[in-house]
Nucleic acid binder design. Structure first.
Lengths: 257, 257
DNA sequence: CAATAACATCTAACATGTTACATATTAACT
DNA sequence: AGTTAATATGTAACATGTTAGATGTTATTG
């Protein structure tokens, strides 16, 4: 269940739920809307973000039903933006829509997670390759700084902070390639993995091992040995695969078929 | 404009347009819907396919406005499935939605095309790597057979056939990696490039050059020299980049900003 | 009692009315 | 005339009523 202020009045029109307060705000500047690349924060975008966050953080558990109408009521919007948001999540593979039956948070599927991991490695390995070609000094410094913060977070057992830095590290690698939109593409394909990683962090302290693997990857980049970076990343995957099997043994209900 | 039978009656309810005839058909078997992976062919899916095809084939030109209501009328459906389909296309980067203003077929953007090309190469290079590890003989035979057909198509100047085989080649490389859903992901990220390639094929006979590049790539795979395959693919990109600049000079209106 | 058919229920898909907002156009004003 | 304000217009976003189909349950039949 989404833990959000439930307020349902019976009057016509939708009463402001959580979205009512932080209502739509658009960037206001001199230029026209179409010229500047202002990101329109529509209701459906907000609903999408809320649901996505809830799914990735396992607040909404794999296999759990999502009641569109209930969500709409809780968030104080109509069914339309909720449906739109869910359609996007389905596209991303985070929910499964069975027509005329129901919508469910997607269960974990080892084969799909394997594919997602493969895609992530492929993209980030290629990104590293490119980043090394153009500028390395500044990038390496950034990466190492991120690692420093990861160590701090690991020391004080700050899971959330560590997780955020983890994501940032991958984003930085993508950005360093200097390709417009690459980070967004990579982030989208990473959705499945993000969900799993959160679960793993929750179940056992994989933080320290993860940190070591990250350090090895960054070290390889610092040495400009692209191939070693790729291999190290590959190693990272197989570790992840073993963890996954453990998770499946412990929590089979999270997995499909 | 979409060239489709226009039929608009004024009665209540939506009169069957093109979609009316080939109406929704679901796979009927013993098992329940949720158990088997039946792909639900909804109206929005059909509208999506039609519009996507129209955009990629440049039947709908870059920059052209898409009138949702008109499309709905032409296809004999309501605005809802059209909106849903367009939202998906926007997600894919094929259309641009300006809230409260209009929806337009996305103009070509060199930087985004570059990113798309990068992603494609990254994924397919990685796929080749994996495919070579597990099974090569059968795969190489398949690829070479495809090339044989490409040569035939090139001989008789059959653009459409050549184009289809080109796509098939890339799909085959993805499938050979044995990763569930990889082909679909790669295909989606390839949308932008598919559009450009069609335009290039139309403007000058790049077919023969493309064929040679494909042959070089497949030859490298056949030799199991993964690195050479990657380099050859990289070469393929830079060629494509030059062609793009020529296209931009000839048809600037297709490009953004 | 098992198999099957009728039925009830629930949900996504679809249709359509309404609203808010981006933009163009015109009017007013300096 | 150039600039700003008022207005008109058109579209996506949103709200909500309706429909069709998937599934579970109960009744019916052999």
């Amino acid at each position: 269940m989404l833990r959000l202020p439930e307020r349902q009045t019976k009057r016509t029109g939708v009463e402001p739920g959580v979205l009512g307060a932080l209502d739509v705000q658009l960037g206001s500047s001199g230029k026209s809307f179409r010229e500047q690349k202002v990101v329109a924060v529509t209701r459906k975008d907000q609903v999408y973000s809320i649901l996505r966050q809830a799914i990735i953080s396992s607040q909404l558990a794999p296999g759990e039903a999502i009641r569109k109408e209930l969500v709409a009521l809780q968030l104080g919007v109509s069914r339309t933006p909720v449906s739109d948001a869910i359609a996007r999540l389905a596209d991303e593979g985070l929910v499964e829509i069975y027509p005329q039956t129901g919508t469910f948070v997607a269960r974990l599927r080892l084969d799909k997670i394997e594919t997602a991991q493969f895609v992530r490695v492929a993209l980030e390995t290629a990104a590293i390759r490119r980043a090394a070609e153009r500028s390395s000094a500044a990038v390496v410094a950034q990466l190492q700084n991120n690692l420093k913060n990861q160590r701090k977070a690991a020391d004080i057992q700050d899971f959330e902070r560590f997780y955020a830095l983890d994501e940032e590290l991958h984003d930085m690698i993508c950005d360093a390639a200097g390709l417009v939109g690459l980070r967004e593409i990579a982030a989208k394909e990473r959705s499945q993995i993000d969900r799993v990683r959160r679960l793993l962090l929750h179940y056992e302290t994989r933080m320290i091992e993860t940190l070591k693997e990250h350090e090895a990857i960054v070290a390889a980049i610092a040495d400009s040995s692209v191939e070693r970076a790729a291999v190290t990343m590959e190693d990272h995957i197989s570790k992840m695969g073993k963890m996954l099997l453990q998770l499946q043994a412990k929590r089979p209900e999270l997995f499909a078929s």
